[in-house]
Design a protein around this nucleic acid. Structure first.
Lengths: 126, 126
DNA sequence: CTCGTTGCAAATTATTTGCAACGGT
DNA sequence: ACCGTTGCAAATAATTTGCAACGAG
């Protein structure tokens, strides 16, 4: 049965306080400031674990490392192709798994939508 | 200006003959059978290069290595969560970049949709 | 002849794993 | 005390890069 450790609480609370869709590395750095003895492997382990049990959200941005999100409600992400910043994208219609045609008899379970583009700052520069 | 080498032709032709959405590694193995002296770095380089100039398609499957596709027309991909096989998904509606709401003044340029589920074989096993 | 391209090996990046010590319950 | 969890360092996996030799135009 799952145990309640200081490391686990710190990683989860830290992620919840970050609004910038951090990578595991970024969470590690933030956590490390609070508690310099916590190891990188532990941070990776906790993030992966908690994402798979739904305690937090692991997100999937094109051509990038895995990132994590404090928001748990349905929404997608856009990544700036210049600076790599990630922003939230809201779903307007309810486009889902049934709006596509699958090969043969595959069973679709999960859909992921991601975007690439330019963030406000990088659009300004020409 | 871009040159026409044996390696380049072989990599492109090999990919075009593969219908299974191969990873760079898989293309390398196939190419290597034809020409054992071609190096892995060259295969990676050519695939990346040709994908970025649109000669072939680089695809993005959730939680997986990059893969390449001989089809160039718009369609998405589904990956089996058990065996890793990848299949084509056809777009039914024309869901695109305008069907979502972006933060602030981001400029979306590219949308990518991917799926995870079970392939026919793996759905059979319980 | 020039300069894009290749092969090789070494470097990088992101992440995972083995294992003994640690510490919740 | 039991066994999930941690820290550390080493291992993996996927991909990239430096560089000297090669070869297409």
């Amino acid at each position: 049965m799952q145990r309640n450790t200081v490391q686990k609480r710190l990683v989860i609370d830290t992620l919840r306080s970050m609004a910038n869709h951090p990578s595991a590395e970024m969470v590690y750095e933030a956590v490390h400031k609070e508690n310099p003895t916590i190891s990188k492997a532990t941070v990776y382990r906790i993030l992966k674990e908690e994402a798979s049990c739904g305690e937090l959200l692991g997100i999937d941005v094109m051509n990038d490392v895995n990132r994590y999100d404090h928001r748990l409600d349905p929404h997608w992400h856009i990544r700036c192709r210049k600076c790599g910043k990630v922003g939230d994208v809201e779903m307007l219609g309810g486009v889902g798994v049934n709006d596509y045609a699958y090969p043969d008899v595959w069973t679709p379970e999960r859909i992921s939508v991601s975007f690439e583009g330019l963030c406000p700052e990088c659009s300004k520069e020409k």
